[in-house]
């Protein structure tokens, strides 16, 4: 029993880290009032660019750089559309995802050869801690990138907590953009930056998936993980700890599809594939009614009098 539980946890953490990283970026974006549906596309683009970069340069570090830049570029696109052009955030987000899916599929035909080895990250065992039964292998036998990303997530949560100026600015802009504007907070700049943060972290989440776990790029390899990240923010009631818990639950739900068949449990594969999304639906349906989203979520800001 212990080894199988360990396997399940290892797989859960492996799948939860990308969701966690992307969701904590999305959390900042949503708190600032921008609903970024293109997390999926940012992750996919990040994964694709990191594999292309790592293969071309032969170094996983350049891969990470490429993944981050690619995520940022999609972030710039989304920020221009959502913040500056005040376009419909959901529609443009979905279109950006479609563009990322088609673009990476197209690019993979041109740029990637099947069968070439992609330089990735090796797992680093933390001495002693990795020997803890059950939890040790899952938590303390990760790649350097994974440790760095989790550290970045914690750092981001601290920097944007409600005790810092930045965190207050983010919340102010998301709750009541007009008042924030009147008090001198640069609304558009804060929102634009927040979407860039979403892009950066989502790109890195895709990189983690590609270079630490899968070690290659396959068409549509994120397969909806980005949407789970968006839902994790809702399910986590726009609080960092809640979002982290939701991300872990989604990771666990995704992990079951790999672990249960290995255990010989006879559950149809498709049922396991749909499990995370059913959970996500339940989460959205159950949690939404007693948690409050940022009041200005999905509403573009324009200074009074300019539009008329």
């Amino acid at each position: 029993m212990i080894p199988t539980l360990t396997d399940l946890l290892v797989a859960s953490v492996a799948l939860a880290v990308p969701v966690l990283v992307a969701a904590s970026g999305e959390l900042v974006g949503e708190r600032a009032g921008v609903l970024t549906m293109s997390v999926e596309g940012m992750m996919l683009t990040g994964a694709f660019a990191s594999v292309v970069g790592a293969t071309a340069s032969g170094s996983a570090f350049y891969g990470v750089l490429c993944g981050a830049v690619a995520g940022l570029l999609v972030g710039v696109l989304q920020a221009v559309l959502s913040v500056l052009l005040r376009a419909d955030q959901i529609v443009t987000g979905l279109a950006a995802n479609a563009l990322a899916l088609a673009g990476t599929t197209f690019g993979a035909r041109l740029l990637l050869d099947r069968g070439t080895t992609v330089p990735g990250f090796a797992r680093i065992e933390i001495p002693l801690l990795a020997d803890i039964p059950v939890l040790g292998p899952a938590l303390f036998r990760q790649t350097g990138l994974a440790y760095a990303l989790v550290a970045a997530v914690v750092l981001l949560a601290i920097v944007t907590s409600r005790r810092t100026g930045w965190g207050i600015a983010v919340d102010a802009v998301g709750q009541d953009a007009a008042s924030a504007d009147r008090s001198g907070v640069p609304v558009l700049r804060v929102r634009f930056t927040a979407v860039l943060v979403v892009g950066l972290l989502s790109g890195l989440a895709g990189t983690q998936l590609a270079l630490s776990e899968v070690h290659t790029f396959t068409d549509n390899m994120t397969a909806g993980t980005g949407y789970l990240a968006v839902v994790a923010v809702i399910a986590g009631s726009w609080r960092p700890v809640g979002v982290a818990v939701a991300a872990v639950v989604f990771g666990l739900a995704q992990a079951l599809q790999f672990t249960l068949p290995a255990l010989g449990v006879d559950v149809p594969f498709a049922l396991l594939v749909m499990l995370p999304y059913v959970l996500a639906l339940l989460a959205v349906a159950g949690f939404v009614s007693h948690s409050r989203p940022p009041a200005g979520l999905n509403t573009a800001f324009v200074r009074q009098g300019r539009l008329a």
Binding site: L81, L85, A87, T92, A96, L101, V302
Partner: peptide, 30 residues
């Protein structure tokens, strides 16, 4: 040419149309 090129075209059209809505759609200020 990979067939996904048509999806690229489709999504670019949507981004173009949705992104320019502030110039094409008249709205009340608030």
């Amino acid at each position: 040419v990979p067939a996904s090129i048509t999806q690229i075209a489709e999504s670019l059209i949507i981004l173009g149309v949705a992104g320019t809505a502030i110039w094409t759609v008249r709205r009340t200020a608030r």
